[in-house]
Design a protein around this nucleic acid. Sequence first.
DNA 1: ATGGTGCGTTCGCAAAAAGAGAGCAAAAGC
DNA 2: GCTTTTGCTCTCTTTTTGCGAACGCACCAT
Lengths: 300, 300
Amino acid sequence: MPVFSRFLRYFMAVAQHGSIRKASDELHIAASAIDRQVLQGEKILGTQLFERLPSGLRLTTAGELLLTSCRRWSRDLNALQTQLDNLKGLRQGSTDILIPDALTKGFLPTLLGKLRQTHPGIMVSVHVRKSHDMGELLVKGHADFALMFNPGHMRELTVRTHKEIPLGFVCLPSHEIAEMTEARFSLAAEYPMIIPAPPLALWRPIGVLEAETGVKVATVAKADNIQMIKSMVLEGAGVGILSYLDAYDEVQKGQLAFTPITNRKLPPLTLALCVDRSRQLSTAARFIITEIENFFAEQF
Amino acid sequence: MPVFSRFLRYFMAVAQHGSIRKASDELHIAASAIDRQVLQGEKILGTQLFERLPSGLRLTTAGELLLTSCRRWSRDLNALQTQLDNLKGLRQGSTDILIPDALTKGFLPTLLGKLRQTHPGIMVSVHVRKSHDMGELLVKGHADFALMFNPGHMRELTVRTHKEIPLGFVCLPSHEIAEMTEARFSLAAEYPMIIPAPPLALWRPIGVLEAETGVKVATVAKADNIQMIKSMVLEGAGVGILSYLDAYDEVQKGQLAFTPITNRKLPPLTLALCVDRSRQLSTAARFIITEIENFFAEQF
DNA sequence: ATGGTGCGTTCGCAAAAAGAGAGCAAAAGC
DNA sequence: GCTTTTGCTCTCTTTTTGCGAACGCACCAT
């Protein structure tokens, strides 16, 4: 178990989300267990930490006091961890990481490139695999961690970080959708659309959305390759539906625009950083993981 | 479970004592369990926290880094707890405490007296009992906590704080022993001694010491009452053997002098603050406990 | 050399704590 | 009126933790 107690970890998650069930989703821990920890913690501290509203939990002033302390302690711990790493000498080391094909372009190469500059001694071996193969490789110890989409919860794996990846319309910067900060899905009926086809993971949520909303998507093209879709959008063939991650580097370069779709029926697409729960991470692996976590926290 | 993780709590105890077995004694937790937590913690942090010497454990620089953070976190938590108490309004409340006869004079009345000044709303009910009755009363919920000497370990009880009470010679300030900062037990053969008799708890360790060292104590008087012993010493009848606690207030007033006995055969006399482990303490009780802990930390 | 002591650590087993999952009542949104 | 969402409770299973005995090692006095 981690350095801090279960209670503190659960408390922070609950405080952040304002809901036990949301925290449960993030932590991959049953809501009942979290509830028990929170209740027990309040008993120990002798104070209500949350006020119970029908819509969820809100921090009391006592709770906020604790939360700020928690935050400080967490930062302390992070700082301490990097101090320890430096102490140990983070000059060399190697890591094996698993990523899906979708990440072969975009933020990851950029991040690893920067890493080469700052820490030239670290050797990173990148293995591109299908998501459903990663779990086994991780458990067998062939890699230190994996970035995977919508990981089905495996008992041996732990999700260290995860990030909701917004789904949205991808178009040329000159297109009128590019002006919007968010868009409803019904726009898909009004513009020529280029949508992902199986076996791309994105095919499923779009299908769900189409069925749930009853919107008839004005499909002008389908492709089972992300790059192909982007290329067609770049050629002015239509508007694509992709995740933010897929379009990340073209958006950064100003070649394409991304507008997230807002729809509560939309099944969330999450990118998770998974590790084998029984494996102790190498210093290099831990370092890269924190770099990725920082990126997630800043960029999105 | 307490706010901080087992690992942190055990780590601090081990770091303080420089030995797992010592920490085991303090925490009343098997050494093997502590060892496992420390090992696991080192694995998680990816760093040796201690260097293993044949004589015990010594902190590495990494360990010291962690320890200082731990100390800060602990202080934070204490401060936060009193903040929460103030928030809740520590205007009123009541506590039932159990003490042995030996504490009816000395630091405790002084401390409770000061408490009346600063927190007049708190009502303290003091119950003087024999040590071996306290456990049952505590478990039955008749009191919030107890101060007891050498508590035999009971499963339902937890030792929140404990302090080694030095045993030593008590004499008039003009006596030559009063000049020494510490004294060997063999001095007991050279001066007229006034020693405790059963059923006083002090009778046992002195007997043990006499047997172990082979020193023939020059006993001129025995008494089964602490006050009687002190009175005789004040009358110049001889030198007493008592615990520091017994002589505390006369020493503070300058009427008597105390010189601790240094002997590694001396069975430690410990004063422990015990609570029922399943009971949640009232705000008032918690407050008084921290006051006592502070006193222990400062005064001794 | 030789037992004795104190140390950290390992192992098997039992007890305690935590997690999972179904289900509850209450309140909000539709 | 209905579904959905909320925190919370209950029971069952899994995981973690504690305990106590043993082991290997280094030291120390005999």
